[in-house]
Nucleic acid binder design. Sequence first.
DNA 1: CATAATTTCGAAAACGATTTCGGTGGCTAT
DNA 2: ATAGCCACCGAAATCGTTTTCGAAATTATG
Lengths: 339, 339
Amino acid sequence: MAKITLRLIADTLGISVATASKALKDYPDISQKTKRDVKELAATLKYKPNSFAQSLRNQESKIIGLIIPEIVHHFFANIIHGVIKAAEKEGYLVITLQSDESYENEKKQIELLLEKNVDGILISLAEDTVNFKHIKAIIDEGIPVVLFDKISKLIKCSQVVIDDRKAAFEATKYLIDSGCKTIAHVRGPLKPQTTIHRFLGYKDAIEAHGMIYDKALVFEADHLSYEDGRKVAKEILASNQNIDGIFAFTDLLATGLLVKLKEAGVMIPEEVSIIGFSNWFLSKITSPTLSTVNQPGLEMGMAAFKLLFEELSNKKNKVPTEFVTVEIPTNLVIRNSTR
Amino acid sequence: MAKITLRLIADTLGISVATASKALKDYPDISQKTKRDVKELAATLKYKPNSFAQSLRNQESKIIGLIIPEIVHHFFANIIHGVIKAAEKEGYLVITLQSDESYENEKKQIELLLEKNVDGILISLAEDTVNFKHIKAIIDEGIPVVLFDKISKLIKCSQVVIDDRKAAFEATKYLIDSGCKTIAHVRGPLKPQTTIHRFLGYKDAIEAHGMIYDKALVFEADHLSYEDGRKVAKEILASNQNIDGIFAFTDLLATGLLVKLKEAGVMIPEEVSIIGFSNWFLSKITSPTLSTVNQPGLEMGMAAFKLLFEELSNKKNKVPTEFVTVEIPTNLVIRNSTR
DNA sequence: CATAATTTCGAAAACGATTTCGGTGGCTAT
DNA sequence: ATAGCCACCGAAATCGTTTTCGAAATTATG
């Protein structure tokens, strides 16, 4: 059985390829009868336009690229899901790539995507990435780029973020409002911007409520791991500071803290309230369940695609795009690790 | 700045497009000098072949499709990672799609992938899927397909699986060897084949060790959720059967069981040993940490791609492919929920 | 020196779909 | 009868690369 092309349809109908093509796309200069004939035959033959030929002609692939630091990660998996879902609705498919938090990989993968002529690219920057030439280069080439989560304000493009500082403020405020008097913050490594923002949100909240900020109450974890959470818990216990509330940088740390403190006989939340960040799956299954800040990956992914899609449409209509930064609202999820 | 095409290179060098193309691909009938010239110019101009034109000509996209039931899922995220990683090594990119366990979506998404002319497709079947015509149709069209995890032996193609029955046997055996006398099994809903295989593995182990299989020790959870784990725990407590070991269908159920039993004052593992299945992330952070069966998603994803890649290569060389079923070994991960 | 054997290159035909720019043929109005 | 106007269709160029096949130029051979 031969391939079903426009040529085939045209020949069996005794018309030209041009006419067949136009009939399928409802050009006004084709008679109703011809349109019916062509469409009917196309349907029965299950004609599928060859996307290579279309892309070559139209210079668009209807495929976008997505680069994230890590796939096996609750938040980023949600991002992927959101992007794919939103893209599918608009007829776009998504090629996903993982940078492993490496600048070199990021660069290489952008190349791969460009080689495949994706119409646009969505990126969450690798931790390693401090130089933005590679991103700016593709933007200058006219390929729309939208950044999300791990972004940089130094890059001129649309971006999707959460307000880490405000979210951290709210989380800390909740601890204060629920009666905590000595609130610690467990921060992560210095690199990502988010570390600083969440720390500042914590500090803001402390100071906005007539408490005094105390450096000794800020603990730093080397990695954002469960183990490091346990390690910091030991430090907290050893510090003898009567800490009765902890705002942790991320759920994994919070879980480590929670488990270790419980093992040490501390009652959660009666003696110490703990609040995490991200609303990972695991926060639902710790005991007690973990209060946290919901970081809506699905919505962020969808929003990122929508921005890219708008830019793509604008480009097609030769309309310039104004870059915007969309902020996705977070919300507190109060469970049982807080009073 | 104009687009960099072979035409441009050829014209500035005063040669033909044909020669330029062949020079880049090291055809033997091109002089060394010409090759050098072309390659040099191509490099300085950063020439990138237009993939649409290449695909149109060669009838291959160097893109494969991947359909899974659910992206936000520890095991499947590992699969995605494995596939993407293996594919990248061979110069392939991956379009990922989520079927939401729906047969209709699965069908639609296969269409989408075919429209984009992917070279091959990797699928983990949706729960809903009982009819395999849509899969057989694409195989008949000559598009290589490899099934993994949720597979069907009724489809003639290469497949990647684990031996659920054997793995369940080993898990149950461990409970027996560690001294459990009355071992319960918590199974999932009937639909997926895996439910039956893991149940049979449990039964095999019981009977292979001189114990008698007792239907009353098999509990069925409606969903594979944490909540349902808790629900079943209540049933177990109410049944008064002196159960001292539980093999659960999946880690999430096991976690629900563990937490609820602990809340009811049962000592884990002293009074009841619990073993799960899948080695999800959360099994590392329950307290006590959960013993489980490691289901290696990364390896399965990589293996699935490799099978597809082989088939793709065979197809190019007009060599027929013999379909094989690769079994990825599982292994027990013993933590602290078992004696 | 003529002929054969190599190198080295390029014209041209794919791969399919899209779109411009005319061109038919038929009809009405003058 | 001629011009003007529609409605409908198709030839051909285009997108950029690949590959076959033949031709030209060069070198080797008798």
